[in-house]
């Protein structure tokens, strides 16, 4: 009897320890990256690191501006493509689709989430890049080229747009599954009340469901954004990796993640280089942490309310 309760208590302590230390991993990662990034943070003012465009590690100049902008361009465009499509799909699945349709579509969306990022990257190289190079860029360059955003001077197809399309696909499953869960958590009573007042289904969705679910939808979008923000391999393969500030969606870009993946571990002999790359990693991590913590706290509120 004594040994049994002793075992129980021991196991409890042990499990607590595992849980506790695992929940500290995030902080440990941030701390380790900070420790390694400190040399560059003390050597250069933060403003110069973020806003300088001159990236010459050999001369000791580490301006992350083009890379930060590269990340922002690709991520923002990916979200512009992904948000409307994912939200409409999520509303369809939550409000319109029959159980049978949902039973077919949801596993497919889960499948989309499981496809490895290099496979998306390969798809980008084989399908998206040629499509942009041969059709989209020439066509839009000719018709809308006078707008700087659509000027097609880069003829390779490896571009912000290619990266964004690949990223948009990778973000679909996240936004769809979180948003669908949020929509379904809206109580039926509200829907019925709205329908009873003579609203059509879409009016009900527009005025009741979306309004009620808004914070959760924002959280879903933020989660998708942060996934796109940190995605590496797929983007790296299609975005061109030219350290310039893009001004058109057909320009190449060089996101932070690609910068780390392409250079880390190779040029350790250059002073501060490795520190600078880990600084970039720390920046990515902190951004993603902020987004995630915000989104998770909102989601917890939203989803718990109805349970």
């Amino acid at each position: 009897m004594l040994t049994r309760s002793l075992k129980d208590r021991l196991a409890s302590r042990l499990m607590f320890l595992v849980t506790f230390s695992s929940s500290l991993i995030v902080f440990l990662i941030a701390l380790a990256l900070y420790a390694r990034a400190r040399p560059i943070l003390t050597a250069k003012p933060l403003g110069e690191l973020i806003f300088s465009s001159s990236w010459h590690p050999l001369k000791g100049e580490f301006g992350f501006y083009p890379f930060i902008l590269g990340t922002l361009w690709v991520t923002a465009l990916a979200m512009i493509i992904s948000i409307p499509l994912s939200l409409l799909t999520a509303i369809y699945l939550a409000e319109y689709a029959s159980a049978r349709v949902r039973g077919v579509v949801k596993p497919l969306i889960d499948l989309l989430a499981g496809i490895p990022s290099v496979v998306y990257g390969l798809w980008g190289v084989l399908a998206v890049v040629p499509l942009i190079r041969d059709y989209v860029a020439p066509l839009m360059g000719r018709s809308l080229g006078f707008i700087p955003l659509f000027s097609a001077e880069n003829l390779t197809g490896y571009s912000v747009l290619a990266g964004s399309i690949v990223l948009a696909l990778m973000v679909f499953p996240i936004i769809i599954s979180v948003a669908e869960e949020v929509f379904r958590s809206v109580p039926d009573g509200l829907r019925e009340a709205s329908l009873a007042l003579g609203a059509t289904r879409w009016q009900m969705v527009k005025h009741v469901v979306i309004r009620k679910a808004l914070p959760g939808v924002v959280a879903a979008i933020v989660l998708g954004f942060s996934r796109a923000f940190g995605e590496t391999m797929a983007v790296l393969m299609v975005v061109g990796n030219v350290a310039m500030i893009p001004s058109s969606i057909f320009d190449p870009a060089y996101p932070l993640t690609a910068l780390i993946a392409n250079n880390y571990g190779e040029m350790m002999s250059i002073p501060l280089y490795d520190s600078a790359l880990l600084g970039a990693g720390l920046f990515l991590l902190l951004m993603v942490l902020c987004f995630n913590i915000m989104a998770r706290i909102i989601l917890r509120r939203v989803l718990r309310e109805e349970w």
Binding site: I25, V26, I29, L33, L223, S226, R227, F229, G230, E231, T232, T257, I260, A261, G281, L284, L285, V288, L289, F291, N292
Partner: peptide, 8 residues
């Protein structure tokens, strides 16, 4: 932790 990019 689930949201931390794999490159990190």
């Amino acid at each position: 932790l689930w949201g931390v990019p794999s490159i990190v």
